[in-house]
Amino acid sequence: MSSSFLRNVIGEYMTELGQKSDKVVLVNADLAGTCRNRGFAEAFPNRSFNVGIAEQNMVSFAAGLACEGFIPYVFSMAPFLSMRACEQVRTDVAYGNRNVRMIGVYAGVSGGISGATHWSIEDCGIITSIPGILVLEVSDAWQAKKILNMTLDYEGPVYIRVSVEPVKDIYCEDVKVVSGGSITLKEGNDGAILCSGVTVQYALEAAEKISAESGKNIRVIDMYSLKPVDHKAVIEAAQTGRVVVAQDHNVIGGLGSIVGTILAEEGLSVRFKILGIPDRFVAMAHAPYLYKKFHLDTDGIKSEIDNLF
């Protein structure tokens, strides 16, 4: 199984997207290299804007371009996009319902040794609480391309969180994505792992290990659409009796909170565990070390499932 770096995939695919529609423009804030935007900038110099280290202006500027009918793709590190430019995302993009696509790389703690300033364990909570934004998280290269294609026609603002950790290739070209969708990667009725982004690969491996060891079948669902979320998938997962949510995000405000709210509203009684980054600042370290420490890696997720039996 080969693997991919999603920011490379997305950054490079932007050139193809630019060929598909001349309404596609790109705005970044001095992170063209980091976000792999240079190919687009070379192919379409007039449609590429680099506003310098000014994330607030980056988002407002993109909103202005969207006012004139363009589809701006804004690239930055997720913490700067969701926090430094938070009010611009909310007021200039979401309030105005502008067709701005915001791509936040360095999702979760994937920024690793850059440390907490460059991590984004809050963005899902922040952005999903802003009305009207489609919030997505990508887990694989083909899925990322399909999501970018979807954003060409989608009406309204979109936020996409992207890990910079390598991810194993999970899907093939026929993968389908839709607002409010999810993808069941492995069937099973003994429990379910709901996950998104970098954790999807680990959840799959954990479920396979459990099958091999004990014969228990654990369902694995890629909840790539964080808002709107696939309610039906959550309700059906609860019917297995055991739900583990795994996301590289603060345990508060992420996919776990989204799923937990549905379980509570539906009155579903289920063994339930949220895996994520604990609600405190931790010192910089490589992402795999942190995933292991916080039980987001294959063995961690497996042990947390085992605990529910």
């Binding site: 423009v25 007039n46 607030q56 202006n57 500027f61 202005g64 371009l65 006012c67 200039d92």
Partner: peptide, 18 residues
């Protein structure tokens, strides 16, 4: 909220030119 209109106006102005 202050400090928003002018940066958006820049984007609009750039969009017109484009």
């Amino acid at each position: 909220s202050l400090g928003h209109g002018m940066p958006v106006a820049c984007g609009v102005a750039a969009g017109l030119r484009l």
